[in-house]
Each structure stands twice: as structure tokens, then as C-alpha cells.
Design a protein around this nucleic acid. Structure first.
Lengths: 338, 338
DNA sequence: GTGAAAGCGCTAACAG
DNA sequence: CTGTTAGCGCTTTCAC
């Protein structure tokens, strides 16, 4: 492992010049730049992260905190963030709060405070005041993805608008009895996603002059199995069966499709199904959905941070940054039967 | 951010004593220990990672390199490793090679060499000689998960034994025409998993005195859709249709189940299906499978590293560490029809 | 545009 | 058992 001094010696300059050249900060003549770069290249020199951090206060590393690494959303966000960070020469250190034990406390009270991070991205996390304090105590920029965090810049999709769009799609096809497989109470704690999607669904119905029937709502747990069970409850009654279902996630929507098939119903012949996400399996099941772009969310979070890291004084213009979503029509929705 | 000096002052001792106390290394009297701990607690002191690393040469951080973060396997391995690392006070820095651009080169030629890592875990990676060299150049312990890396300690499951077990399960139920949905050539590059599973399958058939029919093999791409299409090809012929399918992954196996349903066949009535993985969806689909435990693999990789980091001289006893797998019987397998 | 030198905050001998 | 001290390998003033 060659050090900066080796490079300096080989290039015939001082370590200060090597540092300036390789970091791109400070004035260096074209000639020296070339010499230094050649020397560094030849020796395979790579700066020592700890020495550089200690001296400069910058770590070139950012922390990503997630509740757990399951499903499709979190890995996608992380992958997007990773890609963007790599481009910027940053490392990504992952903090996974799963486990339910003292992992969470230990992450917030120790790991994040080790001054190993220049900033943190918190994904779908409802942070307690104490946790936000801890984070701010470090004095590092913080951006949220998905869950509104008090006083923190956050990237979100407008869940009500998403639900409205999905419901309006079904309405526009002529459906009037539209069921909703949403989240149960337990899933509302973190960022009110289920509630917001339900509100959007109901708003769309009301705008269309159609009443909201409580019995057309079925709560589930965001899994395929949960969606399956909810859909069976919705579809097994033979009076007033819905002709369409809006599920609050693709996994649940796929569960609905499978339930319909098991009941001998065809999709979309007898029943239309629409989800939210554009999950990796959506295409295979021909699922119409409202796509959101988690990778893009991860990348965008990084962009926001990079900007903040560059010109410090930039304070949050608006706290919430709205992320795009769009209707992706496939073969699971069509006009109602008859 | 309180520093070690603040703590020393408050506790009325030297910084060396604080360091010794908090790191647990070196002798400290019970009384001082208490004083120091109280002071540190009161000030909310957390050691600066970069200063500590620079001085000690240890970073308390390990790198995990993965080909991409999709699917179910990689996130699970990462989550397992994360959990184990957290317990040991280590951070996890994630390197994702996806993207196909120069990400890979940049990771190996820069990121991993920044001396930010005490060790690295390479998951399902076929490393080039140059890459292994780079890694060894850093002089850090390296352990592989899933893909045998030249000269590196690696955790693997015995893919041939896995396939044999799956096939034998079908044989024991009385099946004799057993199809295999395996991996196509492209997927063999990285660690010969498809080939090994196919060999295991064929070995089991031969041991049972049953010939291997080439037309009972269908290659696919490890996705649900790929499994679906392969199964259709296998099941659509009406002469000599297999009565059971062994798929080399659960996602493909689920695709097979869906294909069977679409062809009007019942599982396991007309056709039995077995997979490999114990994927998160396996239970929902009632899929019999050979479970492997990716979280456990991640944890084990960490254990191996921790041991190596503790008592340096420990050299690889055997290079390959065999990981457990087991038959998990659900409702997708039964005796053949008639 | 470049070099000298003073740290960044901690750890690890080495004394005592 | 505890304190003193010399770095760890860089970055960053500040002169020149």
C-alpha cells in the first residue's frame, strides 16, 4: 500500500501538492498534475479513507437506514442510492433496524454517531424525536425517503393522488362497485400510507358521485397471502360482488388475481385488479398498476444530499419533494362484465 | 461532539485510560472503569471512527460485495450479515456491482482499497484473478458466500446433494418421469450452480436405475416467467408428459405451478413440483422445496471473519465450508396419478 | 503554483 | 494499573 509520501517522492513534489492534485481542490499546474497522476497510477495509490477523513472532516461515506431489507421496495431504493453514490465516489454504509431488539437503539446511539458518515438517508422510517435529535447532533444532512420525518426534507409520492389515479382508471372503464384491499391499522403507524391511499380511493369515488361502501374495504398486511385472503372475502359473497379491486400494493394485487382465479373468475373478464408499485412480478401477472420508481427515489435522495454537501448554506426550499408515479396499463383491467 | 479529551478531563484520568476502558483492551481498575463510563455516558461520547482507525489500523467495518441487490437471496444474505455485524459492533458497507458499466472496476480498483474495511465478504461472485489480487493486496481477510473463489474460504451448499435430495424425494413418491427446469448456459458462468444441480438430478435418476431423457430438461433463467415458459414446454406435449418437475429455484418452481394450473392440471394431483430455496413465497404457494438459509449464510460468513480477525494466525482449515439445507415438504408434491 | 508544518482524535508502546 | 508521548496518513492554512 503506497502512501501519499511515496507518490510525492516519485513525482518530485510535496505531499501537499499530491493531495491538491488528487482531490481536485486547489490550484495545480497542468504539468505537475500529469506527473502526480502518473506517479499515483504507477504506484496504485489509493487514499486512506481514515487519514483523509480525520484530516478533512469529510468521510465520503453516507449512511442508509432502513427498517428491514425484505420485499422489493427497500432493496430497490438501496440499489438506486448505491449506484448514485458510486458515481460520486461515495461509499454506502447500510443500517438495518430489523430484529426488533436493541438494534434500533444501538444504531441511533452509537453507530450513526461514529463520525463515519457525511450524511444519512432514512428510508420509510418514522423517527422519534430523540432519534432525530441524535441525528442532528451529528450535524449531518439528513434526507428521508417515503416517511415524513418532522422537519426533515423528504421524498415522497403523493399517496392520495396515487390512489385517486388508480381508482379513476377503474371508474373510467365503467366500474362502479370497486373494492379496496388496503392496509390494516398496524401498518399505519409508520407513515400513514394505508390511510392516505384509502382517502384517495374514497375521494375518487365521491368525485364520481358514487358512494363509499364500508363493506367494499378489506384490510390486509401488504403480502400476497394477505391480498389473497382479503380478495376471497370480497369476492365470495354472491350479492353485490365488486367488479374491480384496487389493492394498495402489487403484492396484494397479485394475491387478488390468484384468489379470483381460484374462485373461477377471470381477470379482467369478471373482475379487474389494479395495484401500486410496478413490482418486479407485475409484468408477469399482467398487472395494471400505478408505478412508482424506488430506484429513482434512491438516486434522487443522493442528488439532494450531494447538492447539500456541496454548497452548505442551501436550506430546504420546500421540505417535501414529490416523486413521480404513473399508470401502467396491462391486462388485469378492462370494462366490467355485461 | 465530545472528544476523548473531554471524557478524560471529566473523569479525571488520561486519554489513554479512557481509550483502554472504552475499548475493553488493557487493564483498568474497576473504580476507574466506572468513572470513565459515567463520564462518557454523560457527555454522550462516541469514538471517532476515523481517528480510531487511523491510530489502530482497525476500522470496525466490513465490506459486502454483491452482484446486484435484486431477488430474495442477496438481500437475505446481506440482512443476515448485517445483523451479525451489528452484534459485533461492526458497520457494513455495501458494494453493488450491478450496472454493468465501470462500476465493477471502480469498486475493485478504488473503493475496496481505501482502507475503510477490515475484511470483505464476496457473495456469489466469480472474481477474476486480478480482482482477487487486488483484494489480497489490501491484506484483508476475505470470505466468499456461494461462489467458489480461487484460494478463498467459501461457504457453499452442496448443489449436487441438494438436487439429489429433491429428485430422490420425487422418486420416493413413485415418480419415474421427472422433468428438470434448470439454468441455461448463461447462468453457469458464475459458479456452475445450474450444472451442479443438473448433475445431482441425473445422478439420482441413475442411482434409481432410471434413464435420463434429454427431452425432460428445460433451461430457464431463474425467474418465475422463465419457469412458467419452461413448464409449458414440458407439459404441453401429451405423450410422455412428466409427472413431476424439479425446478432449480423456487421462483421457477412457482412459475411451473402456475403453468400447470393454466393448462388445467392440478398440483400435486396431475403433477408434482419441487423447488430449491424456501423463497418467501414458497409457503403461500404450498411449494415443497429444499430450503437453504441465506440469512444463516450471511451470519456464518461474519462468524468466520470475526474469528479470523481475532486470532490472526488461524489459516483456512478447509477452504470450503458446507452450509445446511433441508427438505421442506408442503403440498406441491404427492404420488403420481393413477 | 508550491512547500513546510501544524494538526485532525485517537491508540499503543513504554515508563513508572 | 495509569500517564506520557509518539505517531497513524492525510489536508490545510500560511508563507513564499
Amino acid at each position: 500500500m503506497a502512501g501519499i509520501e511515496d507518490v510525492a517522492r516519485l513525482a518530485g513534489v510535496s505531499t501537499a501538492t499530491v493531495s491538491r492534485t488528487l482531490s481536485g481542490k486547489g490550484p495545480v499546474s497542468a504539468a505537475t498534475r500529469l506527473k502526480v497522476e502518473a506517479a499515483a497510477e504507477q504506484l496504485g495509490y489509493v487514499v486512506s479513507a481514515s487519514a483523509s477523513s480525520l484530516a478533512s472532516g469529510r468521510t465520503k461515506n453516507i449512511g442508509v437506514v432502513i427498517p428491514f431489507l425484505g420485499g422489493w421496495f427497500f432493496p430497490s431504493v438501496v440499489e438506486g442510492a448505491q449506484r448514485a453514490l458510486l458515481r460520486n465516489g461515495y461509499d454506502l454504509t447500510l443500517y438495518n433496524l430489523a430484529g426488533g431488539g436493541d438494534e434500533r437503539a444501538s444504531v441511533f446511539d452509537n453507530f450513526l454517531l461514529r463520525q463515519r458518515l457525511d450524511a444519512v438517508i432514512a428510508v420509510s422510517l418514522e423517527l422519534t424525536e430523540h432519534e432525530v435529535d441524535r441525528l442532528y447532533a451529528v450535524g449531518k444532512p439528513l434526507v428521508g425517503v417515503g416517511g415524513p420525518i418532522g422537519g426533515v426534507r423528504t421524498l415522497t409520492i403523493d399517496d392520495r393522488a396515487v390512489a385517486r389515479l388508480a381508482t379513476e382508471h377503474l371508474l373510467s372503464l365503467g366500474h362502479t362497485r370497486i373494492g379496496h384491499v388496503g392496509g390494516s391499522k398496524e401498518f399505519d403507524l409508520d407513515f400513514h400510507l394505508p390511510t392516505n391511499r384509502r382517502i384517495g380511493y374514497e375521494a375518487a369515488l365521491e368525485t364520481a358521485g358514487i358512494g363509499v361502501w364500508a363493506e367494499l374495504f378489506e384490510p390486509a398486511d401488504f403480502t400476497m397471502r394477505g391480498g389473497y385472503q382479503a380478495a376471497r372475502r370480497l369476492l365470495e359473497r354472491d350479492h353485490d360482488r365488486p367488479t374491480a379491486i384496487f389493492a394498495a400494493s402489487d403484492e396484494m394485487a397479485i394475491g387478488c388475481i390468484l384468489a379470483a382465479r381460484d374462485l373461477g373468475l377471470t381477470v379482467p373478464g369478471d373482475i379487474s385488479v389494479i395495484g401500486v408499485d410496478d413490482h418486479e412480478l407485475a409484468d408477469f401477472f399482467g398487472l395494471t398498476t400505478i408505478a412508482q420508481f424506488p430506484q429513482g427515489q434512491g438516486e434522487k435522495a443522493v442528488d439532494v444530499l450531494m447538492e447539500q454537501l456541496r454548497d452548505r448554506p442551501v436550506e430546504p426550499v420546500g421540505l417535501n419533494i414529490s416523486m413521480p408515479f404513473e399508470l401502467k396499463q396491462r391486462s388485469s383491467t378492462a370494462a366490467p362484465p355485461r
